[in-house]
Simulated assay, not measured.
Amino acid sequence: MMFTRRRLLPILLLLLTVSGILIAAAALYIRSAPGVPVLNYHQVEDKDGNPLTLHPEQFAAQMDYLAAEGYTTITIDEMLDAAEHGAPLPEKPVVITFDDGYDDNYTNAYPILKEHGFKATIFLIYDFTDTYPGYLTWAQIEEMKESGLIRFESHTMTHANLAQLTSIDELRHEIADSHDLLSEKLGYDMQYIAYPGGRVNKEIECITRAAGYRGGFTVHCGRSTPEDGIYQMDRIPIFGANMHTLTRFKLRLALAPLIEPLEDLRLSLRAHGLTGIADWMPIP
């Protein structure tokens, strides 16, 4: 049956109405969704093709955007104090984190953060620090620490896949020893750990708690909601090879509550062998 213009009009109006309702519902859900965006970076340098790398000009544009939009950087302690004790937060809080402790965090990211007066946390791999080329030195760490802007926490001893370690002693070495050695080196107790690759389970969580950490972070995409579990807190990964457009950053920052269930669905599809469908999903 052919549709005349007269018959198409109510169909189009219905589609527009449904679309408007869905958009309004999504906007309401995002506004009411709990949690604080915790951004997860790694390297900031001029390198192409590395999925962990952000170019300095891209990082600068993202920090400029946060400043222009009225975001206030807070510490992880401030985020947990708000969740656990009702401490006040600024209207648009954001936490900035870096994993691994690359030296470009000092040479490239730190000057940009300092320009805006932004706070950040860098998770260090103890055995890599001041040991291998491309990683921070203790002198660089001390300078950043003295600025009052940068906090350092644990990313384990060797960046091992914790979920694949079968020995309790190995797990304690990675988690507890990094806590104690970094605390001694930096002059304050380590409060947080970022699990390498985000891999964590109940046993790892138990050892983390016993080691004296206040909380732990994965790389599961979503706003951080300490109320749902302080030892498996979400972050918003900001990496993906050459996909670091400012538009993509804005979408991930704004739509994290919607991206989270989509990421879960994609992981489930891959776990069931439906990789093609998972890769097709248009997630920013």
Rank of each mutant, 00 (worst) to 15 (best):
L16K: 00
L52W: 11
N242D: 15
N105T: 04
E170I: 14
I11K: 12
P237G: 06
P56G: 06
I141K: 01
T121R: 05
Y231C: 00
D130G: 13
G197C: 09
A109Q: 08
L136T: 00
C221E: 09
T75Q: 06
F239W: 15
T247Y: 11
G148Y: 03
C206S: 14
L165W: 07
A26W: 09
D100A: 08
G216N: 07
A87D: 15
N161M: 10
S178G: 07
P88N: 07
S224Q: 03
A67G: 02
G198M: 09
Q43S: 13
T156H: 06
A139M: 05
A87M: 06
L22T: 12
P133V: 05
Q164I: 09
E260I: 00
G276N: 12
G240C: 08
L149V: 03
L162D: 01
V95F: 04
L8P: 11
T72S: 15
G273S: 11
P133M: 06
E115V: 08
A254T: 04
G197L: 05
G148T: 01
S178R: 01
G197D: 12
V44G: 07
L136Q: 03
G198P: 02
P226D: 07
I238Q: 09
F3I: 15
T97P: 02
H42M: 01
L267N: 14
L13G: 15
I112P: 01
I11Q: 09
Y29G: 10
D130A: 12
I236V: 13
Y102V: 02
D104Y: 00
Y195I: 11
E260F: 02
D46K: 15
T17V: 10
A194G: 07
E142I: 00
D127K: 10
D177Y: 03
F217V: 04
A109K: 02
Y29C: 12
M1N: 12
T129R: 03
D127Y: 03
I96E: 08
C221F: 11
E57I: 08
I30Q: 07
A241C: 08
P282Q: 06
Y102L: 08
T75M: 05
L251H: 00
H155E: 03
E260P: 00
D130W: 13
D279W: 11
H85V: 00
G117Y: 07
L274M: 15
T17D: 01
Y41E: 10
H42S: 00
Y135A: 02
H159G: 05
G215A: 14
M144K: 00
Y135Q: 04
Q43I: 02
D180L: 10
M1E: 13
P111T: 04
Y106G: 03
H179W: 13
P237H: 06
L22G: 11
G20T: 13
R214W: 13
A109S: 14
F98K: 05
D180P: 00
G134I: 10
Y188Q: 14
I74N: 08
M2P: 10
G49F: 12
P284N: 13
M157E: 15
F217M: 09
Y41I: 03
K250V: 10
E57H: 12
A83Q: 07
V219D: 01
Q140H: 10
I76S: 02
G276V: 05
I76Q: 07
T4N: 11
L22H: 11
R235H: 06
L274K: 14
D104Q: 01
T121I: 13
T75N: 05
T218L: 10
